[in-house]
């Protein structure tokens, strides 16, 4: 509930790019937690009961669309987390925080583009 309250307040406050990067960090974090919960639930249902529900959940998160979203979440969350860790370790770099955001996106784009390419090629090949 607190997360929702903060996100609602954040949406009303115009903090600019640094705040949006933090909000996206939260949202992608929640996305990854949901994925892990779905994955564990699917494995449990399939292995314990041989349930069709487990296979249905599997089919959702193995779909290309879900993988595109998931890769976005993981890569963004990892790079933004790394950026914040570096800034926390070296506070003197904080005056360049806007530049670090650009650097983060410059790193993100080729990595995510490669992931997108591989996911789409795999989907096209029908594997």
């Amino acid at each position: 509930m607190q997360n929702l309250k903060v996100i609602a307040q954040g949406a009303r406050y115009r903090g600019g790019n640094p705040m949006w990067s933090w909000l996206l960090h939260r949202v992608t974090g929640v996305g990854m937690v949901l994925f892990v919960v779905a994955h564990i639930t699917a494995s449990f249902l399939t292995q314990r009961f041989g349930s069709g529900a487990g296979m249905a959940i599997n089919a959702v998160y193995e779909s290309p669309a879900f993988q595109l979203v998931m890769y976005f979440c993981v890569i963004y969350h990892a790079l933004n987390g790394l950026r914040v860790i570096i800034l926390d370790i070296r506070p003197s770099l904080m005056r360049f925080q806007r530049e670090t955001l650009w650097l983060q996106w410059l790193t993100f784009v080729p990595i995510y583009a490669l992931a997108v390419l591989l996911i789409l090629l795999r989907a096209a090949s029908g594997e």
């Binding site: 903090g15 600019g16 640094p18 705040m19 933090w22 800034l87 926390d88 904080m94 925080q97």
Partner: peptide, 8 residues
């Protein structure tokens, strides 16, 4: 959480 709203 190093959001930088305060600095801004």
């Amino acid at each position: 959480r190093t959001v930088f709203n305060c600095t801004e």
